[in-house]
Design a protein around this nucleic acid. Sequence first.
DNA 1: CATGAATGAGTATTCATTCAT
DNA 2: GATGAATGAATACTCATTCAT
Lengths: 207, 207, 207, 207
Amino acid sequence: MGHYRGGGHEDTRSKRQHILEAAYEVFSKKGYHRATVDEIIAMADTGKGTVYNYFTSKEQLFYTLIRERSQPFEKAMSQVADSEEQPLVKIELMVRLALGFYRENADLWRVMMHEIRGFGSEGHTAMAPEIKAKYHEGFRRILSRMEKVLDDGIAQGVLRKIDSTRSAYGLFSVIVMMVYQKFVDEDIETTARQVTDIFLYGAARRS
Amino acid sequence: MGHYRGGGHEDTRSKRQHILEAAYEVFSKKGYHRATVDEIIAMADTGKGTVYNYFTSKEQLFYTLIRERSQPFEKAMSQVADSEEQPLVKIELMVRLALGFYRENADLWRVMMHEIRGFGSEGHTAMAPEIKAKYHEGFRRILSRMEKVLDDGIAQGVLRKIDSTRSAYGLFSVIVMMVYQKFVDEDIETTARQVTDIFLYGAARRS
Amino acid sequence: MGHYRGGGHEDTRSKRQHILEAAYEVFSKKGYHRATVDEIIAMADTGKGTVYNYFTSKEQLFYTLIRERSQPFEKAMSQVADSEEQPLVKIELMVRLALGFYRENADLWRVMMHEIRGFGSEGHTAMAPEIKAKYHEGFRRILSRMEKVLDDGIAQGVLRKIDSTRSAYGLFSVIVMMVYQKFVDEDIETTARQVTDIFLYGAARRS
Amino acid sequence: MGHYRGGGHEDTRSKRQHILEAAYEVFSKKGYHRATVDEIIAMADTGKGTVYNYFTSKEQLFYTLIRERSQPFEKAMSQVADSEEQPLVKIELMVRLALGFYRENADLWRVMMHEIRGFGSEGHTAMAPEIKAKYHEGFRRILSRMEKVLDDGIAQGVLRKIDSTRSAYGLFSVIVMMVYQKFVDEDIETTARQVTDIFLYGAARRS
DNA sequence: CATGAATGAGTATTCATTCAT
DNA sequence: GATGAATGAATACTCATTCAT
């Protein structure tokens, strides 16, 4: 697109992609506020104006990044949720998916959660609260997938009559924490099993 | 600090307190970056210079705030840990304590967690990483109290041979999440029991 | 410029015209600084590069616009000046012409007057002061036509021995003001007569 | 105020005054858009933040400047209007006042008139249209003073039944033009008399 | 000790212009 | 000729921190 593109593969990913990738690095490392557009363009090896050709503001760049990153994850979660597996199996699969996703995007997600709470931005150029709401929704969509599975489990009698909403959030928080604490080694499955195990069967010894 | 308080000038000592209280409000509401010293002094009804008489920087003010707020909590956790109660009882007590503490300080803690990750400061004016380390320590001290209790439980055979470190972190994360999601109503004990119940006995129906 | 217009490509020449028309709209509405090339090309429905094929810069586009718009006016003023009419008649005719022209181009001229004063450009990309001088000249050419008529009137004894330069400028300024204040209704002649009347015979009652 | 103030007189005029004076120079020379805050602070020999301590934005600085400069003039015009002089005398006095004021502030006023028209700003930080309206008002207040005097003259039979509104604007425009063209020498009274003379008695020779 | 005027480093954003296609 | 993606110089504004009183 525009510009001479040599024979190689390196430019296959567009300028926009380069920027998004650089933004990922910088936002993940620095958080939203300490990240500077200057650092992003330096890493993306592009000009400042280019960023503003593709994104209307730093904030919109940030949220675009989040959106593009979370879509595949959301899709995968939906597939598991809609699959024919048993609830208990679905739970473990979802835990595994979430561990994988968050391990990949831990820092960026931490930053997003912070911003979404309203701590970040707002004083700058705007970015309507309705846009923030959309990201809250994204988060809640994930959660409700999980909640639904728990409800199914309860209905089928394989789970106790727990509070499914809170339990879903709790399970989720554990996953995130495992990632934040870097408790998730190469082998995601082990951690997934551990988490699922305690969630399902508890820490107490069965008398 | 802790100055002589003569009879006349009743506010000598409380200036510092006023600032801390205002800082609590502002940091909680705005997060670290969006909080401004101007807003803090407006709320504390004091001069700008005064802040810098008591605290060396915005950052040090923030961390002082955290420290002073967490001390009573740390002490209470220690007391429970060192008490003569049964491990399972201790667990529920600790959950209750933590729920209470975080409910009180939810926003400020969320902010702190974010900053401590390294998103804040670093390149700015000072506040060596070693100081951040101290706050990590504080966090870890709490965690290790809990871990110790879990280990005792395992040793006494009332808990399964779970990974006590990860379990402590997991339990902790659930507590924090409950608070963040405002799932904790007036009655802390109910939530505490719910959390403890699933942690100990699992969500699965015992066949 | 003024290219061959074959039968097929009817738009070859008009591209330049489209741009000039769009520029007229945008400069008139926004002034020189707030006008953006982006807005002009959007309105002209052309590409950005095209503008720079026909004009060397935003500034040169602006001045070209001014020049092309003022030429017919200058010509008409010259015709009146060179005609065989009586000086007093010439004056009213010129007032009428000027009112018509400025009513048509009020905003653009206001913008030009501002820029020409030296408020615009200068430190920017080019457009030497000598070019500005040319536009001053254009303005002064109009004025000197009028001045000449006044001098003729004095010579013929139909005007008092007024300062013809200043009077021409004064008369001119009134015309412009009438337009700026939107005092010129559909019927230009009425205003022209009013202006000429006071200029010639004064506001005071003849005793 | 703050800072050590040596023995001299030089600091008597506050920082705020220095900034206003520098702003006057820069806005007058460069116009609103090309004037930069950096240039203003350089000339005021102050820090950038200081400007924003006294003024909320570049725009508000500009309008404050206008307001403070025009107040004495408005007051003087009112005094003449309300005096006991004859209308014809008042007219000449007002012309003299206006010539003096505009000679002093010619460039700044030209810039203001341009901005007020809506050509400037707006895209930046805001400055509500209601504020612009206030400056329009200021302008119109002056004009209506003059208009009133003309109406009095008509009522007293010393002026013809001219359109007083348009005439006031016309008279005004001539004054401004004289200033812009630097036709006003040291001796304001001469120009004032010239202008008044033609306005009252016309350019035509009385037969 | 308390104060707040002064400061300037740090940053997001705009927009005219270029040039490979 | 026509196009528009890429560019970066230019600029208003924020806010933590200092220091003379």
